[in-house]
Design a protein around this nucleic acid. Sequence first.
DNA 1: CGGCTATTTCAGAAATTCCTGAAACAACCG
DNA 2: CGGTTGTTTCAGGAATTTCTGAAATAGCCG
Lengths: 197, 197
Amino acid sequence: MKLPPLQHRFVLHFGEMGARWGVNRTVGQIYALLYLSEEPLCADQIVAALGFSRSNVSMGLKELQSWQLVRLQHLPDDRRDFFSTPDDLWEIVRTLAEQRKAREIDPTLSLLRELAMEEPTTEANRHAQARIAETTEMIELLTGWYDDVRKLDTERLEKLLALGAAVQRVLDFTDRLKLLPGGKPAAKQPETPNEKA
Amino acid sequence: MKLPPLQHRFVLHFGEMGARWGVNRTVGQIYALLYLSEEPLCADQIVAALGFSRSNVSMGLKELQSWQLVRLQHLPDDRRDFFSTPDDLWEIVRTLAEQRKAREIDPTLSLLRELAMEEPTTEANRHAQARIAETTEMIELLTGWYDDVRKLDTERLEKLLALGAAVQRVLDFTDRLKLLPGGKPAAKQPETPNEKA
DNA sequence: CGGCTATTTCAGAAATTCCTGAAACAACCG
DNA sequence: CGGTTGTTTCAGGAATTTCTGAAATAGCCG
């Protein structure tokens, strides 16, 4: 593996991370390499940099294409495939989120909804179904939120994230405006904060 | 494996999901089983339900304890360990997020910050470091947001999520209030959102 | 077509991860 | 203490995943 130490360490780390994130080590390393590279790379350059076999690199690239995480491009007068990652990191993150949702969340939701439909036969089943319903609701809440924010352009998304929980204060404020259209609101809190469901 | 079909299907699915989420299939299945169960279970009940070896179950439970995802409790006059999951699903999600942050995000941030410090030697290094800096910023933005919202109580968090991108409209609205000081005084805005560097 | 370059496939080897049974350990009790 | 019950450890075998080299495929050009 002939790669400057900086890139090398990055690549090794994201290989491990990739393994925790549903792609194998090789694929993670290939992606990390492409991500750091200024120009697109062809398969043989990846082989030279990482020391995997040619076929392993080929399979890794195919996997990355199936995740839609790499761009394929051709140079003029060159038949080789060159690969690169999007320049915009947000685009990468959005793609990842999209893919994982499609591969993991959506099938999970189908199953949960199906299980929730079945007629409970025993007391244990009844309890399990209640638990399942609860789970479904939470996932729906989270994916609903996700479906909303993914439509935001990057600039607004960044602002929203930067605001963090402070947004809560804005909401409390507008709540007060809404609830007391007359004068200055005297009530401090619109609702009691700490009820545990 | 003696388990009603409903529970069985749920358990199998979350075994697979567990595998994608950093714990192995066994551990995922054990957790799914505990999650659906009305009362705490002891190791032998898990063995009976899932058909793993006693030692495998023991290791799985140990792993779950290391993630702080299960509660251990004792019944009076019984020496066996009984395990259960928190009743509150939000608590489970919070714990998961906390653990994954500690295990994956924090070490990644350390590495990235360290790499960003190094003196760039080549042009390729300079570009790689720019990419690394960009990555660091995004992770910091996301974890900053997370650190904020995890402090919210469940009720407020649910409201915030349910609002989704609609929150953007509220923000736009208050922005306008701020910009047009003629009418109602916008009173106390929360501190100005972080300026992006 | 035939030679050339580039890529993909795939069966089996290599490596890793997972699981088990046996043994060690620990706590309790009479 | 010795018996009983329950848990943990761990070496090695089983299963799964990953990786490789050889062969197949595909496109291009003269």
